[in-house]
Design a protein around this nucleic acid. Structure first.
Length: 849
RNA sequence: GCCCAAGUGGCGGAAUGGUAGACGCAGGGGAUUCAAAAUCCCCCGCCUUCACGGGCGUGUGGGUUCGAGUCCCACCUUGGGCACCA
């Protein structure tokens, strides 16, 4: 009998799969297709346990689908553009390209030992010119279709690194890298017109039944639909061309409580007024300099500047309201102007108190409620309140009804109109970076902004760039910018901005269907393989990546690159949890924490005997030194153990804590299975016991049923528990060799999605036909799932008091009779008749006394 | 502030409204062994009882039901998302 030696087994079966091209996906009409995809990795250089968990889940699905007769597409690639490559180049002087491709080679080498059912022939990286060139073609088609446009936008500008920063790269108003004070700068940038699709992207969420409700809700909130009234106040004595101020409100029912108008410092009127008002110019400048972080806004004081201008109230023209420029009003939501109702909005209340403006209620909790408020009165819209200054409908109304009535009334009076607005803004894609997909346009003095000709694609990144100075190397490249205008043939300059890396990941799933096509995708391949039947990845991509991909699929359909059926590209989505680990720390002389690697700690102590403090379950991170390296685990226990463990301890959508004891246990179990099956395979005795055979085969069919259901519903942890139990049953069974071999073959097949190498080995030992990877998935015989007799709990008043064993198909009367005959029941009844007896066949008996 | 989710043994967790705690870890006991490793077997929510048994028990308090971890209401705690969004 041989011992379980994963290193030898795993290499051997990986070769066998490779030889047989088991995972090569080829279009074929004689099987149903199934496309399973895990979110592709960023090539950071090392795979981590999170990758192992993510890809193992996808692999379980893929292998199960292969076994159930599907034509499976399971590809892998690299999300390879992005800042870390440039940062590495700046830090160590290499080239982002070398860094990235080097990392890809390293990570592929680390991934292959996992034994994933990947079709590696479809692999690509988004930084391959063959990929980003097609992305440029896509961009040009989108430009032609009006889905991309240029406009000025305010960005966070780092004056030292000479680059634009994302909001999360601004820390305390300073650049995260340079530490320089961030400036708000207006640049001309490219935008995708995603906000035009806000309504459709929102509505279509309703049909994504196989997406987590949480993700759909997050997208819903992000799109942020609101219904309100847009109307204008007439301006008294405004500058030339400014006779009205347009506002948007979701609470038109409070219009009679308006006591001031507020406009954003970036509002055209504010910009016009500051030309002649130095104090206002100073005020606006201060507002614009303000930090953009959430915390800064939280604590920022409400500040305003009285312009001296007045507007007329549309329903009481005698009423004149002051116009303030206020720091808390955003230019890019609504119209950049509001009317303030201090009585019913806490911000407005604070503002009115500070600047001594009237606080006018429009509704109150009751008819005789005190009119003076200590704070804003803001009840839920569904609550009924008394409108003391309502102007449409009943005095007692809910806010909802009053809002509808107010919109209808205003529309009838010609004062404004009901509008639907979305919080979702257009997607700015320009990045002042080198390591990204060049935006394929040129700037021509004669023709303006001109799309590059498709024949000239890809617009390649130049290789000869340096990172010894801040800023975008494309900007200062001696020759790269120089080109000719595709329209007039004259001299022109290339756009030096590159695309946001989210663009790269917004269509890679479609490219996998035809990765070598000379167009963005091959339509015949896309029609066959799309949609992604099962997409798996982290919850951190719930909003941006998944929303952008939904937008892109629509854009690709509009530009003729995807069929209409693929506008929702991901049929089913699963968001898996992280792999966490304890943190081990000691303190240095000054009491500061010092972290220690898991492999340096045993029994809560370091090698020198000092005791470590254990901080429970946290995300693995280099700085906390709690990272467990998959490569180490694989060389220690084998890939099957790592795969088995990451699936075993927690439901897949939740975080799982990596523990050394758990990994040991997983490995021990796999070794036990290997031993048990070796014994069965070697056994030649035929000591038949028909009852034991029958019992084992019944258990086998139950296991087949439970595992099949579990795999299909992502119940991987329960599947593994079930396989532990079935293994115990098999090892204890007194069945004959024939039945045991049959059960062991089923066990090998049921384990194959999780531990494919061990399963092949077991299958081979048991004389299975071909590879277990391609063997048809076992079917549970329904007649074997029910036993002849069944043990039912008997409750008295809902509390368990005994049990009876009856025939599976026993009549209700007979079951009731058997239950009532129980001693415990007789004692409880004490001679009386039961009030009621509930018999749920096959489940339970409850006697009510 | 707004929106959402989750609270079950020492731990991770299981449980179509129907025997709460499957399975794993940790712990305890035993077998095997000269001894150990490895392996195998048994016990393992709390209180009570020599034992049989009995009582309590899924964050807290109510409710619906023959029956609630599961459904409803309120509250507490933790986690997540969004956030000067008018």
């Amino acid at each position: 009998m041989s011992r379980y030696s994963p290193a030898e087994i795993e290499a051997r079966w990986q070769d066998a799969w490779e030889q047989a091209s088991v995972f090569r996906a080829v279009r074929s009409e004689d099987k149903p297709k199934y496309y399973v995809l895990e979110m592709f990795p960023y090539p950071s250089g090392r795979i981590h346990m999170g990758h192992v968990r993510n890809y193992t889940m996808g692999d379980v699905i893929a292998r199960h689908r292969i076994a159930t007769g599907h034509n499976v597409l399971h590809p892998m690639g690299w999300d390879a553009f992005g800042m870390p490559a440039e940062n590495a180049a700046m830090a160590s002087g290499g080239h982002p390209k070398d860094w990235t491709y080097g990392n890809i080679n390293d990570m592929r080498a680390q991934m292959k030992p996992l034994g994933l059912s990947i079709d590696w022939s479809r692999e690509f990286a988004t930084c391959d010119p063959e990929y980003y060139g097609q992305q440029q073609a896509l961009f040009l088609d989108m430009l032609e279709a009006g889905l991309v446009y240029r406009k000025n936008a305010v960005v966070n500008w780092d004056p030292v690194d000479m680059t634009v920063l994302a909001n999360e790269q601004v820390i305390d108003g300073k650049g995260w890298r340079s530490g320089a004070e961030v400036e708000r700068r207006e640049l001309t940038q490219w935008f995708f017109r995603i906000s035009d699709m806000a309504g459709e992207l929102l509505d279509a969420l309703g049909d994504l039944d196989d997406w987590p409700a949480k993700v759909r809700l997050m997208q819903e909130n992000w799109i942020g639909k609101s219904r309100g009234l847009q109307f204008s106040f007439s301006l008294i004595g405004g500058p030339e061309g400014f006779d009205r101020v347009e506002v948007y409100t979701t609470r038109p029912d409070t219009l009679m409580g308006a006591s001031f108008i507020g406009i954003s410092p970036d509002h055209p009127l504010a910009r016009r007024l500051e030309e002649e008002d130095d104090a206002l110019a100073t005020f606006n400048a201060e507002c614009r300099r303000g930090a953009t972080t959430a915390e800064a806004l939280e604590t920022a004081e409400k500040r305003g500047y009285d312009t001296g201008l007045r507007v007329r109230h549309p329903f009481d023209t005698a009423l004149e309201l002051p116009v303030y420029v206020a720091n808390f009003i955003l230019m890019d939501y609504g119209t950049g102007a509001i009317f303030g109702v201090p009585a019913h909005d806490q911000r407005d209340f604070d503002f009115a108190t500070k600047y001594d403006l009237p606080i006018i209620t429009t509704f109150m909790p009751s008819e005789d409620a005190e009119d003076a408020l200590a704070q804003a009165f803001v009840p839920p819209k569904t609550e009924r309140v008394f409108y003391n200054r309502g102007f449409a409908g009943e005095a007692w109304q809910t806010g909802d009804a009053a809002i509808d009535a107010a919109i209808a009334f205003c529309e009838a009076q010609g004062v404004g109109q009901g509008v639907t607005r979305y919080r979702l803004r257009d997607w700015g894609l320009s990045r002042q970076r080198y390591w990204g997909c060049p935006i394929p346009v040129v700037h021509c003095d004669t023709c303006g902004v001109v799309p590059e000709a498709k024949d000239n694609l890809p617009v390649r990144l130049p290789d000869d760039v340096s990172f010894d100075q801040p800023g975008n190397p494309l900007d200062r490249h001696p020759t790269w910018r120089r080109t000719t205008c595709p329209a007039c043939g004259g001299e022109a300059r290339r756009e030096t901005d590159t695309m946001d890396t989210f663009v790269d990941s917004s269509w890679y799933f479609a490219r996998f269907t035809s990765p070598r096509a000379q167009t963005p995708i091959d339509m015949a391949e896309a029609e066959y393989w799309m949609n992604v039947d099962q997409y798996i990845g982290g919850i951190e991509h719930a909003i941006l990546h998944l929303l952008y991909s939904r937008f892109f699929a629509r854009a690709m359909h509009i530009t003729g690159h995807l069929p209409a059926s693929a506008v929702e590209p991901f049929d089913a989505l699963f968001t898996q949890g992280m792999v966490t680990h304890e943190i081990y720390q000691t303190r240095d002389a000054r009491g500061r924490p010092v972290y220690h690697l898991p492999e340096d700690v045993s029994d809560g102590r370091l090698a020198d005997g000092s005791e470590v403090e254990v901080i429970p379950s946290a995300k693995m991170s280099k700085s906390k030194k709690n990272v467990v390296d998959p490569t180490t685990i694989i060389s220690q226990y084998g890939a099957d153990t790592a795969r088995w463990f990451v699936l075993s301890d927690s439901p897949p959508e939740r975080d799982v804590e990596w523990t050394a004891a758990g990994a040991e246990a997983a490995h021990r179990h796999l070794a036990r299975v290997h031993r048990i099956v070796s014994d069965i395979a070697a056994d030649t005795a035929e000591d038949a016991s028909p009852e034991a055979d029958e019992a084992l085969l019944r258990e086998m069919h139950k296991a087949i049923h439970d595992v099949s259901v579990g795999v299909e519903s992502f119940g991987f942890n329960a599947v593994i528990a079930r396989l532990y139990a079935f293994t115990a049953t098999l090892s204890k069974s007194g069945a004959g060799t024939g039945a045991k071999r049959q059960a062991a073959r089923a066990l090998a097949q049921l384990m194959a999605p999780m531990t494919p190498h061990l399963a092949e080995e077991l299958w081979h030992m048991l004389g299975g036909d071909g590879l277990v990877a391609t063997a048809p998935w076992p079917k549970a015989d329904p007649s074997m799932l029910v036993d002849d007799t069944v043990t039912l709990p008997v409750q008295i008043n809902g509390k368990r008091r005994g049990e009876i064993t009856v025939a599976q198909d026993a009549a209700k009367d007979a079951v009731e009779e058997t239950a009532l005959a129980l001693d415990a029941v007789q004692r409880a009844l004490d001679g009386a008749a039961p009030k009621k007896v509930i018999v749920v066949p096959g489940r339970i008996v409850n006697v009510v006394v």
